[in-house]
Write a protein that binds this DNA or RNA. Structure first.
Lengths: 350, 350
DNA sequence: CGCCGATGTGACATCGTTCCCACACGCCAT
DNA sequence: ATGGCGTGTGGGAACGATGTCACATCGGCG
C-alpha cells in the first residue's frame, strides 16, 4: 500500500529523445543561433563551423521540427486537399496529381475525404484551419467551405465543381462544351430519344452538363422529354434502379448520356441486367473516363477529364495565389478528350 | 531615392489577423491561462467566466493552432499514411479506410504516395518525421522506412506488405492460403497448365502468393513448369506483353492466376487482343478485386481483399500502439473472400 | 481569531525554431 | 587614436498554447 510507483519508475523512460537543434549546437560547440544559420543557410557562418554543425546534425539524425518552424515563421509547408470520395477513381487520380505537385514544390499533403457530405466538409475545413495549412484544394459540395476558409485567411482553390466563381480561384473543365459535343455525336448519328442521367441539374457541373445536353438537343431540333432526364443522385444503386425502369419500357431511349462515372456504372449494369445490346439496342456515352470503361466490351465512349492534371494544376494555382494574394481570382480550364470506343452506333432502323 | 517603403507602407497589411487565445482572453477580460482552461475544460473556471470566454471565442472565430499545441504538448494529432500508388484502387480504398478511421479518432491524415520507389518512400518518411506525426501507416517497399521511423521514435504499422515481421505491427491478409484456395479451385476443375503472373517471388506478398500457388500444384501432383511463372514487375504494359507471348502459343496455359489487379488487367487485355474466349479457352482468376472485374463479361473470379478494412484496421492498431508502446508487435490478419464470377470453367475437353 | 480547504485566477516558464540585435574581432582609412 | 566596415558569433525575444505554481478570496470550524 505504501509502495509508490513514482519511487521506483519501472518504465525505462523515453528511450529515444529526439535530437533538437540545441543538441546539435552543443555537439558542435556553438550556439543555437549559429547552428540554425548553418543548417538553414541564412546569415554568416564560417566554413569550418558550418561543416562541424552539419556533421553533428548528421550524426544525431537531426530532422528539424516542422511544427516549431511553422510556429515561428508563421508559414506552413502543408497544403490541404479535400475530395468527395477517394474510392471514386476520379477523385483518387485528382488527389494523386495534387500530391505529386505538392511534393514537387516541397509541400506535404493533408488529405481528407468528405463523402460528399456538407457536415464532413465543414469538419475537414476546420481541421485544415487548426493545422494552419498554407492553402486548400477542394472539390466543394457547398459554398460554405471556401467562405469559411477565406474568413480564416486561408487561400483555397475549387476544382471540378465551382461554387464561388468570383471570389475564388478554380480549376475546371468546360463541362458544357464537352457535354454538348458528346451529345451532338449522338444526334449526329440520328438518335432522337436520348436520355440523360445526372446527379442534379442546378449546380456547377450538373447544371453545365445539363445545359450542354440541352444545347445539343436544341441544335438538332429535338424537343426535350423530361422523362428522359433522370436526376438520380450520387449512388450507383439509385442510378441502377432508375436505369432499369427506363430501359425496360417500349419507349426506351436509343441512347444514354451518363453525366459521371458512377451513373455510367449504374446504367451499364442495368443494361446488362435487361440484356440490352450495346450499342445495338442502346448507345452509351459517359462523362469521366475510368478504368473499367476500357476493359468492358464494347468499350464506353467517354469524355476523359485528366483528373491528375486537374489536381496538379489546382496546386500550382494555389501556390501562385499564396505568393500573390492580391491578384484577382483566376480560372484554369483544362481541356478534355472524347475517347471513342465501341458503345456508340446509329439507332436501329437507320 | 530617399523615399523609403517603410515610411509609407503601401500594402494594406494583414487584412485578417487570425485570432489567438490572447485575443479571446482580452475580449473576455481574463488572462490567457483562464481562457485556456475555459476552452480546454481542464482546471477550475467559474461558470460565468467560462461562458464569457466561449462567447468571445465564438465571436472571434477562434480556432486553436494545432501546431502550437503540438509543440507545447509534444503530442501530435496527425498520422501519416504512405501508399504505393493512389491511382490503383486497392491503395485508394486503403487510404480511404485509413482516413475515415483517423478522423473518427480525431486525427488528421497526411497522405503521400511513393510510386513504389524506395527513394520517394524515404523522402516521404522524412517529411513525416519533420511533421512529427503521431504514427505512420505504410505499404512498404523496403525495410528502410520502418527502421528509419523507429530510429526517430515514430510508431509504424505495415499494411499489405510486411518487411519487419518481428519488430513492427502489421495488418495483412493470409496471402498464401488465399492463393492456394484460388489455385486449388483451378486444379479441382482439372486444370494442369496453370500460369502465374506475379510481380516478384522473393518478398512478402509475392513470395506468399507464389507459395500458395505452389502448394496447390503440389497437392494436385502437378510439376511446376517455370515457363508458366511470369515475374512481370509492376506495370500493365509488361504484363500485357508477357501475356501476349504466353497466350499466343500452342502450349498456352488453360488457366491464369494473376497475383494482383495490375497484372490481371494486362492478362485480360492480352486475352482480348488474341481473341481468346474466357473462360472457354482460358480461365482467369485474380488477386485483388477491383471495380472493372465486376463490370466485364464474364466477371473475373477474384480474391477480394477489403482494402478499406486493411486501412482502418491499420490505423486502429497504430493508435493502440501509441497508447501502449511497450507491448510486443502484433499482426492482424484480415479475412478475404473469393468472389466467384464467370471467368472460371473446366479446361476444354474435360 | 486564526486556520483550513475549496474554489478561482493570473504570472510565468516552456516546447523547438528562427532571427533581430548587440557585440567582438581584424583591417583599413582617416 | 578613432571610426567604419566586413565578417562572424551568441543572447534572447518571439511564435501560440498549456500547465505549474503561487496567490486571492470566501465560508466554516475549532
Amino acid at each position: 500500500m505504501a509502495q509508490d510507483a513514482t519511487d521506483t519508475p519501472s518504465a525505462p523512460g523515453p528511450v529515444v529523445r529526439r535530437a533538437t537543434i540545441k543538441d546539435v549546437a552543443e555537439m558542435a560547440a556553438v550556439s543555437r543561433s549559429t547552428a540554425s544559420r548553418a543548417l538553414t543557410g541564412r546569415g554568416y557562418v564560417a566554413e569550418g563551423v558550418r561543416s562541424r554543425v552539419l556533421a553533428a546534425a548528421e550524426k544525431l539524425g537531426y530532422v528539424p521540427d516542422a511544427t516549431a518552424r511553422h510556429l515561428k515563421q508563421q508559414v506552413s509547408l502543408s497544403i490541404g486537399v479535400l475530395v468527395s470520395d477517394l474510392r471514386n477513381s476520379f477523385y483518387a487520380e485528382l488527389a494523386a496529381g495534387a500530391g505529386r505537385a505538392s511534393r514537387e514544390h516541397g509541400y506535404s499533403m493533408m488529405l481528407a475525404d468528405d463523402g460528399g457530405l456538407v457536415d464532413d466538409e465543414a469538419g475537414a475545413a476546420e481541421a485544415f484551419v487548426a493545422l494552419r495549412v498554407a492553402g486548400v484544394v477542394v472539390t466543394p459540395v457547398s459554398r460554405a467551405v471556401t467562405d469559411y476558409l477565406r474568413r480564416h485567411g486561408i487561400p483555397a482553390v475549387e476544382v471540378d465543381r465551382q461554387f464561388a466563381p468570383d471570389e475564388c480561384d478554380a480549376v475546371v473543365v468546360d463541362n458544357r462544351a464537352a457535354a454538348r459535343r458528346v451529345t451532338e455525336q449522338l444526334t449526329g448519328l440520328g438518335h432522337r430519344r436520348i436520355a440523360l442521367f445526372i446527379d442534379e441539374t442546378d449546380w456547377t457541373t450538373g447544371r453545365d452538363r445539363y445545359w450542354g445536353y440541352r444545347a445539343a438537343l436544341d441544335a438538332a431540333g429535338i424537343q426535350e422529354d423530361p422523362s428522359y432526364v433522370v436526376s438520380s443522385g450520387w449512388d450507383i444503386e439509385t442510378a441502377y434502379n432508375a436505369a432499369l425502369r427506363l430501359l425496360d419500357t417500349a419507349s426506351r431511349p436509343t441512347a444514354v448520356f451518363a453525366a459521371n462515372n458512377v451513373l455510367a456504372e449504374g446504367v451499364w449494369r442495368a443494361a446488362a441486367q435487361v440484356k440490352l445490346d450495346i450499342p445495338g439496342d442502346v448507345s452509351v456515352v459517359s462523362f469521366d473516363d475510368v478504368p473499367w470503361m476500357s476493359m468492358v466490351t464494347p468499350g464506353v465512349t467517354a469524355v476523359a477529364q485528366d483528373a491528375a492534371t486537374l489536381g496538379s494544376t489546382a496546386v500550382d494555382r494555389l501556390l501562385r495565389r499564396i505568393s500573390a494574394p492580391a491578384e484577382p481570382p483566376a480560372v484554369d480550364v483544362i481541356p478534355v478528350d472524347i475517347i471513342q470506343r465501341g458503345s456508340v452506333a446509329p439507332p436501329r432502323g437507320t
